[in-house]
C-alpha cells in the first residue's frame, strides 16, 4: 500500500509522511492494541465503505423462480436484515443493488438495463442463478438472453438453479467484502469514483430478429475460443 505508483492519471494517493502512518498502514494487531486503550483509528475511506457495505438497499424486482428464493432470504428464517439489506426499494432511484433474480428474456432485457441506468451510483449488480449468469437451461432458447453480463456489468455471480437463500446471503457477504476493499482514489479506485467509466449503458432496441445490439462489447467480450 505504501508503494503505490506515484505517477497516475487520476488523483494520486499521497504517500504517507514519515512518522505519521495513515490508518491503513498500521497492522490490525497494532490497531486492536490501540482500540483496547480506547483509541479508535480509522480512515475516511474505511468509514465510508463500512457504512455503505452495511446498508445495501436492493431493488425490489424479481424475474423468475430465483425471486422466490430472494423473497425467502428476506423472511424471518434467513433474515437478510442481519446484513443491512432488508429494505427492498420499489424505486431504482433509491436502490444500491440490483439482484437480477431469474431468467432474463430478450423482451425484458431492455427494461432491466433501463432500471440499471436509473439507479444512482454507487450501484452494484448480482446475477442470481444460472439463467441470469448464462441463460441457464434456456440458453439455447430463442427468447432468452445468454447472461445479463452481456449488457450491464455484474459484480457477483451466484450459481444455482435456483440458489438457496444461504447462497444469496453468501453473495451479499462477498459483495460487502468487495465494497469494504474499494479505494476512493488512485488508479484502482472504485467504479463510481471514476469519471471515465460510464454509469449508463446503451439500452438495446427490439430488432426484427434479435436485440440490437445483442450485447455490449464494452461490458462483455467472448473469451478466447479454446485452441483447437
Amino acid at each position: 500500500m505504501s508503494d503505490a505508483p506515484q505517477s497516475t492519471p487520476a488523483s494520486p494517493r499521497p504517500a504517507p509522511a514519515e512518522g505519521f502512518p495513515a490508518a491503513g498502514n498500521i497492522s490490525d494487531a497494532d490497531r486492536e492494541e490501540l482500540r483496547r486503550h480506547g483509541i479508535l483509528l480509522t480512515s475516511l475511506e474505511e468509514l465510508y465503505n463500512w457504512g455503505r457495505s452495511n446498508s445495501i438497499w436492493p431493488l425490489q424486482f424479481g424475474l423468475a423462480c430465483c425471486a422466490i428464493e430472494m423473497i425467502a432470504a428476506a423472511t424471518a428464517r434467513f433474515d437478510i436484515a442481519r446484513f443491512g439489506a432488508e429494505i427492498f426499494r420499489p424505486s431504482p432511484r433509491q436502490a444500491d443493488l440490483m439482484i437480477v433474480s431469474g431468467t432474463v428474456t430478450k423482451k425484458m432485457a431492455p427494461l432491466v438495463v433501463r432500471l440499471w441506468n436509473q439507479m444512482p451510483e454507487p450501484k452494484y449488480c448480482i446475477a442470481m442463478g444460472a439463467c441470469a449468469i448464462s441463460g441457464g437451461p434456456f440458453k439455447q432458447g430463442y427468447n432468452v438472453l445468454k447472461g445479463i453480463d452481456r449488457l450491464i456489468p455484474v459484480d457477483i455471480y451466484i450459481p444455482g438453479c435456483p440458489p438457496r437463500p444461504e447462497a444469496l446471503l453468501n453473495g451479499l457477504i462477498q459483495l460487502q467484502k468487495q465494497i469494504k476493499g474499494e479505494k476512493l482514489t488512485g488508479p484502482d479506485a472504485a467504479r463510481h469514483t471514476r469519471a471515465d467509466l460510464p454509469s449508463e449503458y446503451p439500452i438495446p432496441a427490439y430488432g426484427a430478429h434479435d436485440l440490437e445490439p445483442a450485447k455490449n462489447p464494452a461490458v462483455w467480450t467472448p473469451p478466447a475460443p479454446p485452441s483447437a
Binding site: E121, A195, L197, S199, E200, A208
Partner: peptide, 20 residues
C-alpha cells in the same frame, strides 16, 4: 433466416452517456 448475406442489420449502438 433466408436473408441475403450482407443485408444483416447493422448494430445500432446508442451513445454511451458519461454522466458522471
Amino acid at each position: 433466416p433466408k436473408a441475403a448475406p450482407g443485408s444483416t442489420t447493422p448494430a445500432t449502438t446508442a451513445p454511451v452517456k458519461e454522466a458522471k
